[in-house]
Design a binder for these strands. Structure first.
Length: 192
DNA sequence: AGCACGATGCTCT
DNA sequence: GAGCATCGTGCTT
């Protein structure tokens, strides 16, 4: 696959809900040690600005969330629950902290390697996705619009509106309403 | 098929 | 010291 076809920065420099929806069906590509792995994005969630009490940026800029305050099209990768890495794509304009959490892929290239890393289990889950593609904190802040970083997103098969499901974001147990239930989760209706 | 729980360590108050 | 944008196991229905 041609790595020059990574999505341009203007793709990410749009409203976060637009980007989250548009990422469904796109191909997430990881080039690591000369081996290319990829998968179709099937689930994503929007985290939008300091008003959003579910967003890491809600209490201001910190060392951890600083990348979200930067320019769009970069990877915000953070560590949680003592063992899991999460991958986000930064959206909107510089200084407006927002991002899309990538929550699931359907493996496309490098299926044997992915299967081995996952010990035969699925890749539907934000930490499963990063484990499958070998994504960790060393990729925090990298530019998704440059293939040199080894991680980028390319166009993929379009997902029709009829195949898009929405609902509340996952895992925000202690986040107050309306943020806890606002339907900012997008997924492709496929049988797992 | 669904729920409860333990693992495990970083970040910020 | 508390709280995680989770996962896999093991137990219950």
């Amino acid at each position: 696959m041609n790595s020059s076809s990574c999505l341009p920065r203007e793709f990410y420099a749009r409203p976060t809900l637009t980007v989250a929806r548009a990422l469904l069906g796109m191909r997430l590509v990881r080039l690591q040690d000369g081996v290319q792995l990829s998968g179709i994005i099937t689930e994503a969630e929007a985290y939008i600005g300091q008003e959003d009490l579910g967003c890491h940026a809600h209490s201001g800029k910190s060392l951890r969330n600083a990348v979200m305050f930067g320019p769009p099209g970069h990877a915000y990768v953070y560590f949680t629950y003592g063992m899991h890495w999460m991958l986000n794509a930064v959206t909107e304009r510089q200084d407006f902290p927002a991002a899309v959490l990538l929550r699931a892929i359907q493996p496309l290239e490098g299926i044997e390697i992915i299967s081995a890393r996952r010990q035969g289990r699925d890749t539907f889950g934000p930490a499963k996705l990063t484990q499958a593609l070998g994504i960790d904190g060393t990729l925090n802040g990298i530019d998704l619009c440059s293939p040199a970083s080894g991680l980028w997103i390319e166009p993929g098969p379009p997902v029709p509106e009829s195949a898009v499901l929405t609902g509340p974001r996952v895992g925000l147990y202690t986040v107050p309403e309306p943020w806890k239930s606002i339907p900012w989760r997008f997924r492709t209706a496929i049988n797992h």
